[in-house]
Computed example of a mutant assay.
Amino acid sequence: MTQFVLVAGAWLGSWAWDEVVPHLRAAGHGAHPLTLSGLADKQGVPAGQQTHVRDIVDEVERLDLREVVLVGHSYAGIPVGQAAERIGDRLTRVVFVDSNVPAVDESFVSTWWEGPAKFEAVLAANGDVWPPLTAPDFEGQGLTEEQIARFVGRATPHPGATLSEPAVLTRPLGELPATYIKCLLDGPEPTDDVAELLKSEHWRLVELDTGHWPMLSRPTELARILLDADGSAG
């Protein structure tokens, strides 16, 4: 019985997985959507990036989970990738869903595609939080108006410290068993750092023809990929 621990990206809480969880449980597996500190129903809780790593590790240990598949979407790939090496033999696989990946001494901000200075300015102008997206930002991402409204209505500001703190890894990320899901509407190719990791014999690539938030736009297909990731599909 696989235990899926599901962690959504910036601005989101456990609610983002509401349409994925039933598929995993119907297949006979455990599904544990997790809200990170400072977001959604945990809004206001002080959090840095290592807080988020501990959130994930603590959940696995609190529930005494084994045969764990850690799933990290977008920003959450950074803390999930760090948590994966810290749960030891409890881990079966990591699944990165169109996500960032951690690199030693690098942060989400430092690898921002438009440059760290621009991102730091956004945080500084907004009281050290990253404001949620607005409806026009979702154009071309395969979401319905209803799905966009749900996102905008439930999203919460993302704590800046979680984005600016550097990652801590004790082993090469490419040594972990991993699946990377590339959402094609958000760009046809993985980023350079992911492409390098995909050269590892332990990593594999799966493409999904949807936008950056497949748990909202294509939950059934995403659940099937998660079940296939470690041979759990029936």
Rank of each mutant, 00 (worst) to 15 (best):
Q3R: 13
Q3L: 00
F4H: 04
V5R: 09
A8E: 01
L12H: 15
P33G: 05
P33D: 05
G44V: 09
A47S: 09
Q50L: 13
T51I: 13
H52A: 13
R54P: 01
D55Y: 00
V60A: 03
L65D: 01
L65Y: 02
V71I: 04
P79W: 06
V80K: 10
Q82E: 12
A84F: 04
I87T: 10
D89W: 01
T92L: 12
T92A: 11
T92S: 12
D98I: 10
V101K: 07
D105A: 15
W112P: 01
E114N: 13
P116L: 04
K118P: 00
A121D: 14
V122P: 08
L123N: 11
L123S: 10
A125K: 15
P132L: 08
L133F: 14
T134G: 14
Q141F: 03
Q141P: 03
E146N: 06
F151H: 08
G153V: 04
P157D: 09
P157F: 13
P159D: 02
P159E: 06
A161F: 04
A167D: 00
T170N: 11
L173S: 06
K182V: 12
L185S: 02
G187K: 07
P188G: 13
V194K: 10
L197E: 00
L198E: 00
L205S: 05
L205G: 01
L216N: 02
P219M: 02
P219S: 04
T220Y: 10
L222E: 05
A223R: 12
A229V: 02
G231C: 04
S232R: 13
